[in-house]
Design a protein around this nucleic acid. Sequence first.
DNA 1: TAGATTGTTAATCGATTAACAATC
DNA 2: TAGATTGTTAATCGATTAACAATC
Lengths: 212, 212
Amino acid sequence: MAKHKITAAPSVRRLPSYLYIVQQAYKNNQEYISGTVIAQELKLEPIQVRKDLAITGIVGRPKKGYPTGELMNAINRFLGWDTTHKTVLIGAGNLGTALAGYQEFRLHGIDIAAAFDNDPGKIGTTIHGVLVHPLDTLEKQIKRTGAKIAILTVPSEHAQEAADRIVAAGISAIWNFTNRKLSVPDHVVVQKEDLTSGFALLSVMMRFDRDE
Amino acid sequence: MAKHKITAAPSVRRLPSYLYIVQQAYKNNQEYISGTVIAQELKLEPIQVRKDLAITGIVGRPKKGYPTGELMNAINRFLGWDTTHKTVLIGAGNLGTALAGYQEFRLHGIDIAAAFDNDPGKIGTTIHGVLVHPLDTLEKQIKRTGAKIAILTVPSEHAQEAADRIVAAGISAIWNFTNRKLSVPDHVVVQKEDLTSGFALLSVMMRFDRDE
DNA sequence: TAGATTGTTAATCGATTAACAATC
DNA sequence: TAGATTGTTAATCGATTAACAATC
């Protein structure tokens, strides 16, 4: 199974923001919402919203827009957020704890079955209802829970070592919050969440706006 | 002053990963590093690395590569990471605490002068050496410190309100970790760090690899 | 009905990749 | 010198935007 590049990655990245708007409309008992309205809220072009929504398979109605309930379901289905996935949290520091606490992620199917850390003070405690296990029981717990997703928030210098172990234990998707590029087999997908690159962009925007 | 879209944003985002590699080479007393080598480490195309580095103004030497010391300086200067910026942290929860603790950010010029929270249990304590102030002293402290950057990690429902206040107090750059699109004046730059969109991409990659 | 909105097809724009001369 | 690497110019690729017919 070859490693793919996701086509339309920018579109996929925008879907959650659409989902949020649509959910609000749904809660307000709006039967339909138009791409135009979504675009206004997010300061995007309506044509971009229509194109993005098309990849979910949703069909809208001229003049009215998209049925809010159906659209919510279509986005959730397309993203795979309509089923829960057993997940493990590797590294129970501040960042890991923050992520475990995001109720939003649970709504998107993330079910954190176990957390791991090598700090004896943390082992045996729970963070947001998740029990923290010693790192050396990682293989056993991943097999026991059948988790396929790992959230990786260990210190960067241990990132590759941790990745190797969790992949060997059966993990096939890694949400990587370290600043290291991971080497993994072809069948494993990695999403690198790179805070530093975001700050680089902010830094350049500041300079640009000042200088120009 | 009009709001710009950064051209070459993908290139800017990749610069920090180059910087990391180059710093390692520098520490290993390598005088030169070639774009080819950087590309190999990061699994990119050499031509992409050369094009990206060109925006920093660095000039390499055929056959040898780029002088490591000069290249480090060029990237840091281009990103504005060679000067420190007073910064305030709005929201001292788990995520804010994690960000305050990243020594890496300090090396890139982030100097967190004050943190803010409305939890009485946190006010008066320090997180990673930063004193936590009550939220209602925000205006006073921003003016006192002269901070121009804010890291926004408040609960999403308070994001816009907090943004309005910090902008009024003189902040001109917001690193936004909430999931809300902020409305700000033209002279204020915002970098939205959207964890949910990253997870959307991971989710689709998982589905794609399975189904195809 | 008239007009707003969808969805498709075409055009534009920007980023990535290729080709290759210059050069140390 | 020969060969690896840079930097520039051109080609390709993919994403965004524009135009517009279909339609409820």
